[in-house]
Simulated scan of single mutants.
Amino acid sequence: MTATFATVDDYIGSFPPETQAVLQEMRRTIHRVVPDAGEKISYQIPAVTIGGKVVVYFAGWKHHVSLYPVLDGDDDFERLVAPYRASKGTLKFLLSEPVPYGVIETVARHLLAQHQASA
C-alpha cells in the first residue's frame, strides 16, 4: 500500500533526516521564486500552486530528489538542465552529490513565467 499524505510537512517528514533537509531547502527555494504560493499534495507528492493551479511539483526518492514538469526552454536553459534531465519533463538530483539549488531556482522562475503566460 502506498502512503498517503495530508500535507507537504507530512510528506517531507516521511523521509530520513538528510533527505528532509534537502526537500525543505527545495521547498524554500521554490517559495522564494513563487511569491504568495500555496501548497498541496497532488499525485501523492508536494505541489506548489498559484490560485490553486500547480506551478511545480517536487519529490523525494531513495537516492535522489526530483522536480516536475520541466518543460523545454531556450538553449541556455536546456544547457543548464541537461545534466539533470531524467526524462522529458523530469529533473533528477542525486542525493550523493551537492544539490544545485541555483538550478532549482532558475527552473522555478521558468515554470512561473510559463504559468503566468498561460494564465
Rank of each mutant, 00 (worst) to 15 (best):
58 F>G: 01
92 K>S: 12
18 E>V: 06
35 P>H: 11
14 S>Q: 07
79 R>M: 03
75 D>V: 08
81 V>Y: 01
33 V>F: 03
57 Y>D: 00
18 E>I: 01
100 P>Q: 04
30 I>C: 05
85 R>E: 00
118 S>A: 14
82 A>R: 15
29 T>E: 05
103 V>D: 02
72 D>V: 13
48 V>I: 15
72 D>R: 14
28 R>Y: 00
64 H>Q: 14
94 L>W: 11
43 Y>A: 09
5 F>W: 12
43 Y>H: 15
75 D>H: 05
9 D>F: 04
39 E>V: 12
71 L>M: 13
71 L>A: 12
94 L>M: 15
58 F>S: 02
8 V>L: 13
5 F>M: 12
28 R>C: 00
49 T>C: 09
85 R>Y: 03
6 A>K: 15
99 V>Q: 01
64 H>I: 10
43 Y>D: 10
3 A>N: 14
119 A>K: 08
5 F>P: 10
99 V>D: 02
15 F>M: 06
110 H>C: 04
99 V>G: 00
73 G>L: 12
13 G>P: 01
54 V>S: 12
100 P>I: 09
92 K>F: 00
23 L>R: 05
116 Q>T: 13
70 V>N: 04
9 D>G: 08
36 D>S: 13
117 A>E: 13
101 Y>L: 09
94 L>K: 15
98 P>C: 10
